[in-house]
Simulated assay, not measured.
Amino acid sequence: MTKQERADYIRGRLAELYPDPPVPLDHTDAFTLLVAVLLSAQCTDVRVNQVTPALFKLGHTPKALAAAPLEEIEAIVRPCGLGPQKARAIKELSRILLTEHGGQVPASLEALERLPGVGHKTAQVVMAQAFGVPSFPVDTHIHRLAQRWCLTTGKSVTQTERDLKRLFPEESWNKLHLQIIFYGREFCTARGCDGLSCEICSTCNAGRKKPVKTKKA
């Protein structure tokens, strides 16, 4: 298979397996999605979904969380890890949304990336899932799968993102990002597949005998 043939096969197979993938983080609007994605850094979506009901009961708008005591925010988000940093980021970005964006989450990648605690991947998730703007957020797991599937040789998530955007049609990016996540969790986990075991790995790399060594993101 050529690289493009692998990409076409992967897109078709993932569409069969996950025709309508849900957003795995519970949210009700762009702001609650932004906060949930911020909390998901170095944390599982399951844990985030366990934490956010209490957080959004404390406040589910920028105005409410900007006014909430930092100690209360931190106590709630602590199970997600990096509690002090995440709590400060949530409170400060809420304040900035109020003072600079009229209390609304901006539909701008650049404006999102300027918010505390919001990196490129987080901003892209919000652009894709809250505003429907074609984006291809790449985390370390998608980076790992893209290497196992021989879609990239990039040593960074930035290079992997560029390679995937070249291989897949823009209109597929938002759904494909979620489909890869769900496939990775179910069939191609960090320890459960070494690039030889799952259906996509074995199909894309027929004849491969040695495990894939992922280049660090």
Rank of each mutant, 00 (worst) to 15 (best):
45 D>S: 10
161 E>K: 13
39 L>T: 03
22 P>Q: 07
140 T>C: 08
201 C>D: 11
190 A>L: 10
179 Q>M: 14
183 Y>N: 12
159 Q>W: 04
44 T>M: 10
11 R>M: 12
124 Q>Y: 00
131 F>H: 05
133 V>G: 00
1 M>E: 08
168 F>C: 07
96 I>W: 01
24 P>M: 11
147 Q>C: 09
51 V>W: 06
14 L>P: 02
100 E>L: 12
65 L>H: 05
179 Q>S: 08
88 R>D: 11
57 K>R: 15
87 A>C: 13
45 D>M: 08
63 K>A: 15
45 D>V: 10
133 V>N: 00
141 H>V: 09
39 L>H: 04
79 P>T: 11
180 I>Y: 08
46 V>C: 00
126 V>Y: 09
32 T>D: 11
170 E>V: 13
134 P>G: 02
40 S>T: 01
47 R>S: 02
48 V>N: 08
79 P>Y: 10
132 G>M: 00
23 V>Q: 14
56 F>R: 03
59 G>F: 03
107 A>V: 01
13 R>W: 13
78 R>Y: 14
75 A>H: 13
36 A>K: 04
173 W>I: 06
6 R>H: 12
18 Y>T: 06
165 K>H: 08
96 I>S: 09
125 V>M: 07
216 K>G: 05
78 R>H: 14
19 P>Q: 12
213 K>L: 11
62 P>L: 02
142 I>C: 13
181 I>N: 04
8 D>H: 11
118 V>C: 06
90 I>G: 00
65 L>E: 05
133 V>L: 01
155 K>R: 14
140 T>D: 07
159 Q>A: 15
121 K>T: 04
55 L>I: 05
205 N>W: 06
45 D>L: 09
113 E>D: 00
173 W>V: 08
191 R>I: 07
1 M>F: 05
170 E>W: 00
131 F>D: 08
187 F>T: 09
74 E>S: 05
135 S>T: 10
74 E>R: 15
176 L>Q: 02
88 R>E: 15
194 D>R: 14
202 S>T: 14
65 L>V: 05
132 G>W: 02
212 V>F: 13
198 C>P: 12
210 K>E: 15
21 P>G: 09
76 I>R: 06
173 W>H: 07
27 H>L: 11
175 K>N: 08
74 E>H: 10
107 A>M: 00
4 Q>W: 00
166 R>I: 05
90 I>S: 03
32 T>Q: 10
34 L>A: 00
121 K>M: 03
179 Q>K: 08
116 P>K: 10
111 A>G: 00
75 A>T: 04
210 K>H: 08
41 A>S: 15
116 P>F: 13
26 D>W: 07
167 L>T: 03
60 H>K: 15
2 T>L: 07
127 M>D: 05
95 R>K: 14
163 D>N: 05
21 P>N: 03
63 K>M: 12
50 Q>I: 00
211 P>M: 10
132 G>H: 01
47 R>G: 02
42 Q>G: 09
71 E>R: 06
169 P>G: 12
201 C>R: 03
112 L>E: 04
183 Y>F: 14
177 H>T: 13
84 P>C: 11
155 K>S: 13
107 A>G: 08
130 A>G: 07
11 R>S: 15
179 Q>P: 11
181 I>T: 06
7 A>G: 10
46 V>S: 09
215 K>T: 11
52 T>I: 15
135 S>C: 14
188 C>K: 04
13 R>K: 15
200 I>Q: 01
95 R>W: 11
66 A>L: 04
183 Y>W: 13
